[in-house]
Design a protein around this nucleic acid. Structure first.
Lengths: 210, 210, 210, 210
DNA sequence: CATGAATGAGTCTTCATTCAT
DNA sequence: AATGAATGAAGACTCATTCAT
């Protein structure tokens, strides 16, 4: 049972939003299983009875948080209007956004993965999230192939899954596991590897070593 | 409190091993948090009380299981004695083992990652696991660089982190999230991308598209 | 705290009546303990808060509903002005009304019995209800005894308790437990048994078998 | 989830029996809804965790108690080997046992009725209980009819439902609602009414008034 | 060593009731 | 009068862990 915001007074909307925000922070900090409904309530400054006015369970809250996160990732990773002309620069721009999107929500996406293990609806959300990123990557590659700038023999989808996974995974290693690099170096490196892997032709594929 | 096998009678050793095996299966199937001590005992065919003869807690059991898994991954991923001469073939051989190692234990490693979130010792184990794979990858690259076969400007460690992550992540996507490919194609693709990314020079870098 | 109708505006009276009616339906359908104040409010189309404008608690509402039911049963079971001359016909007429009265409120009277277990005031109401029916039955019998139409050795009160109980109980079995008969047969049978039991003398005591 | 006695050690059996007994007393005293699992545990002298070793819920416990009660009623109401020759005496003997059986368990049967409202399995148990008593009554009547001792036009089942209901209901009124009579008078009266109602012929149908 | 009964801390969840608007 | 957000007491249930046998 989830009570949607539209059905609420402004006070209700505020309380609900506070719970979602508190939940997001709590999940982020402690992990899904470790979060108690009461933790969330305390953080949001409401009694635990109030929680159940808006959500039927911790799972319902997480569903909401996860949906918000996925939505944000979609938004945040759209390459803006000023697309560079240079293909390599375009890859780099995409990777920067891509890396930031995953990095910003690394913990929560991991949680979503856990949750997806036992719940079909979470699994659906997760697959949807991946699919958007994969499709974008695949389309980018296909365009380059059509322009004769990338190896036409590569399967766009599989390539996108793999190289996209490289970025996503690096975001996790970087932030959650403490691999030490600065963003600039990371993006340069990811982009170099990506560009070379797809056989990007122009001279723009320069080294990006340490 | 963990009672080590060495201190036990053969009957005790058998019971203990049954618990570890049962725990491993249970964790694999249901995830860390969802596994009850009783589930493990039932699966192992012993009473609850017996569990505490050997392990102080569910966490202790998981520690043991995780250590076993990590050990197996180390062993399983060592490229055998018949190393091919061809650098690309070497990369491919390594990727095959690498992919299989991650795929075989994908779920448990994910669990270890969760556990690492809240527990330093699990974090240590996880970092150790990653470090071994990263170091191997980095050394392989360094060797190629020294032989003038790979781009010398690439930072070996960071490259290994990223490309290794690509393989590891693909194992997860492939097995846990149902991305549909056969192993042969996957390994060919991963190896192609890897080889190109590091600028492997010989003609051995052939296409591996769909 | 119960706010009586007299003290209310006509709008208030309407709201109050809606709550009583909704409560009656809810109690009937789901049983006392299973009814939530919110169910009643939803059914009455008012907010929870409003409930407490009129009633201090669910118990207060039930008290009101029970009183209404008891009142109706008193009214409904009064044998009308056209009393038949024939004693058997009179018994039959009374039994018909009696059966209908209990049948119409079977569930609510059962609830009242439950409530009476733990609350003196409900117990009082219940005893009052029974007493009215018992007294009526006893008086009927006494009149027949005085007229020499019924066995004078029967204790009127105890007989009324028992035979009245037979009717009341049958109403319950019939409606709540699904004993299958039609009303006509049931009334004929109850009346036959009743008439014979009190030794009603005239030839009017005809059979009423299947 | 109910753990059956057979699967338990003698200590377990004792604990389980204590819970059933405590539950029975608690239900009897306070009514189904008012009984807390903790009440039962306290009464049985065990922690509330222990309760769940044997029963999955309060409902499970009640199911067990109810089954025991129904079983006892079956046993207790069987007319012994020394059946009197006289039909009236037989009716009286049966009514005595019948009245005692209902009286001894009046409260619990009422509870079973409540429970039957919302749960099919309880409803089944209740109907089974009633059916046994109804069938016995009906068979007794049929035998008398065959012997030419009772009105052959009466439908045995319906008659048994009604007259049996009279006894059952009187047990309730007598014990739970405080109708004041002694057992001897009650049984005499019930038997007289019963005998006359079915048109028992012999002279043995003597008055039983106050 | 193995057993399984017992324990009780920890959580979730419900719902009657209050109260500011 | 009516609303509905907020409250928190009350209870159900789970499960890791202990311990007597």
């Amino acid at each position: 049972m989830i009570v949607k915001s539209e059905a609420l007074s402004s006070r209700g909307r505020r309380t609900r939003a506070a719970l979602v925000q508190a939940g997001r922070e709590a999940f982020e900090e402690r992990g899904y299983e470790a979060v108690r409904v009461d933790d969330v309530c305390a953080r949001a400054g409401v009694s635990h009875g109030t929680f159940y006015t808006y959500f039927g369970s911790r799972e319902d809250l997480f569903r909401e948080v996860a949906a918000a996160v996925v939505g944000e990732m979609f938004t945040a990773s759209v390459v803006g209007p000023t697309v560079p002309d240079d293909p390599y620069a375009r890859i780099e721009a995409a990777n920067l956004l891509y890396l930031r999107a995953w990095a910003a929500n690394s913990r929560l996406v991991r949680m979503l993965e856990q949750a997806a293990t036992g719940d079909e609806s979470f699994r659906g959300l997760l697959l949807e999230l991946r699919e958007v990123f994969v499709r974008r990557g695949a389309e980018g590659l296909r365009r380059l192939q059509e322009q004769g700038l990338a190896d036409p023999s590569l399967d766009p989808r599989l390539t996108a899954v793999m190289l996209g996974g490289m970025v996503e995974h690096f975001a996790h290693v970087w932030l959650d596991l403490g691999e030490r690099t600065d963003e600039r170096t990371a993006v340069a490196m990811l982009s170099t590897l990506w560009a070379r892997a797809i056989g990007l032709t122009p001279a723009s594929t320069k080294g990006a070593g340490s």
